[in-house]
Design a protein around this nucleic acid. Sequence first.
DNA 1: TTGTAGGCGTTATCAT
DNA 2: ATGATAACGCCTACAA
Lengths: 343, 343
Amino acid sequence: MKEHTEVTIYDIAKKLNLATSTISRALKDHHSISKKTIEKVKKTAEEMGYRPNNLAASLRSKKTKTIGVLLPTIEQPFLASLISGIEITAKKAGYNVIIVQSHDSYKGEVNLVQSLYNNRVSGIICSLAMETKDTSHFQLFIDSNTPLVFVDRVPKEEFNTYKVIIDNYNAGYKATKHLISQGCKRIAHLAAGSEFSIYYERKKGYLDALKEFNLPIEDELIVKLDGITLEEAARATNKLLDLKNPPDGIFAPGDILGVSAIQCAKKRGIKVPEDLAVIGFNNDPISQIIEPHLSTITNPGSKMGQASAEIILKTLKSKDKDEVKETRVLNTEVIIRESSKRK
Amino acid sequence: MKEHTEVTIYDIAKKLNLATSTISRALKDHHSISKKTIEKVKKTAEEMGYRPNNLAASLRSKKTKTIGVLLPTIEQPFLASLISGIEITAKKAGYNVIIVQSHDSYKGEVNLVQSLYNNRVSGIICSLAMETKDTSHFQLFIDSNTPLVFVDRVPKEEFNTYKVIIDNYNAGYKATKHLISQGCKRIAHLAAGSEFSIYYERKKGYLDALKEFNLPIEDELIVKLDGITLEEAARATNKLLDLKNPPDGIFAPGDILGVSAIQCAKKRGIKVPEDLAVIGFNNDPISQIIEPHLSTITNPGSKMGQASAEIILKTLKSKDKDEVKETRVLNTEVIIRESSKRK
DNA sequence: TTGTAGGCGTTATCAT
DNA sequence: ATGATAACGCCTACAA
């Protein structure tokens, strides 16, 4: 078997009696190199089977053309489309994407941040792990002037970085208001996440909508979940429907939860939406499969990914780093389907 | 703002009056270095805020500890869990994962293969684009002795590489046999993909099952699809149900298709499974949301990802590359749900 | 328009 | 157990 040896710009230089610098420039269409030389070099490179070594180039230039993406998981439709949006945008600009999953573990996140740094990614896009309260492990990137964008699950205000989010408070408000508009008087909420999460924002929107329309806020209508699963939501929904005075509407801050609520209600012979109107969140595929189809709030994953990547690319281009980091807030929409149409 | 300067092993060496080689070894717990020195080095490194530069290490050692993953898309539950399986396994071994999407374009795939090579990935895991017929663009990796594993959508026999697949023929056979066992006599098939795809294998299994049980193979019961979408499947199902002699069972080689078939039948007042039994493929989340729940074939994405990554890692470890590349065939199972229970 | 030469940060090889 | 030194492949001032 023939030994494989890498063809380098040095080999091309030797063959053409040129300097490596000329080769290097020619391969990048540097303006100072004559067209003739450029063509000749490219042709020879092709013939010799030359393949640029990005590692060497990155080491020298200190530019890796790689974006690190750190997410809780990729096995959620919303996050998968987020990644897809990032990948497409990055690729267009000639960037690669390294993807790592924290599995919602704080410790995991810290390690992965280190690892991404060690790979000298050009920028990093992150959605925080559920467990994460403190974000000092990202200081690394700030100190080294590496663009950092948080998306979806972002840190608290005080941390000055780029953010790409939706207005979770407003979305929760809109979802609840929609149920109210359908005549719901006792609207329940499945409360997920911790006090510092996007779910908390959605809950605040829910609460404020109730207040605004003079509907009572009742503790028994707000059930805490231990996780975003069908099972937890089923447990919670059963609890709600067991009440003396059960709800006539549910705002579920995730489609899995909303779907589970519907399944649960149906099993008990409770009619959706007549007896119980339900609205979810995310517009996952399952929302259009469940019967009745689940009303929901759009969560523009792909656009958020695109926006995040664009911010990274823009920041890399502009030498002067602005001290005030923008926060992009993308729009959400209420999608009304059968699960909540009562009028 | 203070200028950021990288701390290198050279800086540590100077501070401790040691050679860079000693530092390098100490940081990797090389056995020839005394425990005292190792501790001292690590402590100082920590204090100085040293961060290893993987790029430099990779350039020198010619080992990137990165696995390239090339897939049609990541926005499919099956492929997302495939990636997840790869990522988890790779991470355990200290490897990173670069993910790129071909979007089923042959040209895109060729470019991405080049790009991954230029990044000198340690290994590559690929599921072929729908368009891809010829796989000569992967020769690059074979010539450079880079482990290459195809998964799910793999090239034809003649290409001697590692493969991780399920037995699509057998799965199609099992799915069809199950419908037969439920008393179906006229079983239709939604035919997706090209002649060289996994879908074709599933179809062959379907055909052979019919043959084995002496059921007639009728062209009108096999409808070609132009894509794996709800719409295409709806079109096909309507066509089938419009027949003078409509089918009493459908084998859909994907859950989206099966779900669409059920929705379609329900709209027309056709009872599933009594009038029409349906079985899908993949065990996607939607299969458990649709009413009635969709029978399906498991497609072990996560395990396939894990297996693929393991092969890469194993191959990287063993110096001697075996000339015969193994093909791992993972098990599938029939999951029987309401959509096909007629007995 | 092209060439020279040094360095990016690490690891490998050969010495000591 | 530790050191000295040369690569790895490319880029980029500076020179010509």
